Amino acid sequence: MGIFDFLKPKKKELDVNTYLLQRLKQRIEEKGNLVEFSTQYAAILINSEIEIATVVMKGDFHPFILPLLTITINKDYFPKGIESSLMGLGTTIEEKVESAIDNYIENIFTTIADSFNDTHIDEYDFKSIINNREILWHPKMSKSLVQGKWNETNNQINLYSVIEERVKKELKDYKFNWLKLYISRQPNGEISGECLLNNELWEEGYYLLEEYAKKWKDAGEFLGQKQFIMFRRCDAYDL
C-alpha cells in the first residue's frame, strides 16, 4: 500500500481528521499565510507551495492519545512528502487536536517554511563533497525539545550536535535533505527512538543517539528528546 493510500478518508476518522485540518488551516492562516483545502484528498495547501496531508492512525492507543501521520509535500523538492508521526495529548478531541497541531507547527512546519528562505546561521553552515562537487549547506532546525523530568541530566544539549559531524557525509545532492531525530529512555532503562534521513532509517545516526541516551542520569524517570532539521543547498551551488 502506498503512503498516499492512507490519506483517503475513512469513515471512523473522517470527523476528527476534518476538524484537525480545519484547525490547522486556521492556525497557519494566523501566521499570515494563504491556506486553502485540497480538492484531491485530506490536505491543505499553503501559499500554493507547501501541501500538508494528515491522517489519524488506527490502532490500540491510550484514550488520551491522538496518533497522527502528516505528509508535508512540495511538488518540486519533496514530491513524495516529508513524513512525520506525531501524537496529540488530552482528555477531549479539542485538546488532543490542539496538542498535535502545536507539535507539528513547532517541530516540523516552522522548520520547513523557514528553510525556503535563503538565509543561514553561520555556525551551522558547512560544505560537503558529493560526486566530486563541493556544496554549501544551510541547516535550519527546530528547537531540541525534551520530554520527561530532567533533573540531574543536562537538557541543554542540542540533539543535532550528537550526529552533526557524521550526517555531513550522508547528504544527497538534492535541493533539500531532512533529518528527524528522536530518542527516549523508559523508567526501566529501555531505549528506543528513530533517526530518519529523507524518510529512510539511518542506522549509524540512530546508534549515535542510543549511545548518547545511555549516558543520561535520572534513573527511573522517562526522558525523551527530539529535533527536526532541514538542509538547504545554497542557491549559489545549484547547477
Rank of each mutant, 00 (worst) to 15 (best):
D102N: 11
T18Q: 14
N47T: 05
Y77M: 05
I157R: 14
I229E: 01
P63M: 04
G224A: 07
T18K: 15
T92Q: 03
N17C: 03
W137H: 02
V167D: 07
D102A: 05
N131K: 08
D60Y: 10
F4D: 06
E30C: 12
T119G: 12
I157Q: 15
L69T: 04
N151W: 13
K96L: 01
N74R: 03
K25V: 01
I71T: 04
Y182M: 11
Y174M: 10
C195F: 07
N199P: 03
D102F: 08
G224D: 06
F126G: 00
T39L: 13
N155H: 11
M1H: 06
K25D: 02
K214Y: 11
K8C: 08
N188K: 06
E95D: 10
Y104K: 03
L197C: 05
Y174N: 15
F222I: 12
I135T: 09
T153V: 04
D114E: 15
A236N: 12
S99Q: 00
K8S: 12
T18G: 14
I73Q: 00
N158I: 13
F228Q: 05
K175Y: 11
G88Y: 02
K8G: 08
R185V: 05
E51N: 11
K96A: 00
L179Q: 07
A113H: 07
G148H: 10
N117A: 14
Q227W: 00
N155L: 07
I101E: 01
T72Y: 09
P67I: 08
S142V: 03
I73A: 00
Y104A: 03
E211Q: 15
L34V: 14
L197K: 03
S38A: 02
L136G: 00
K31H: 09
T119I: 15
D238N: 15
F6M: 10
S84T: 10
Y160F: 15
K11S: 07
M1I: 07
F61A: 08
M57V: 10
Y207C: 13
L196M: 09
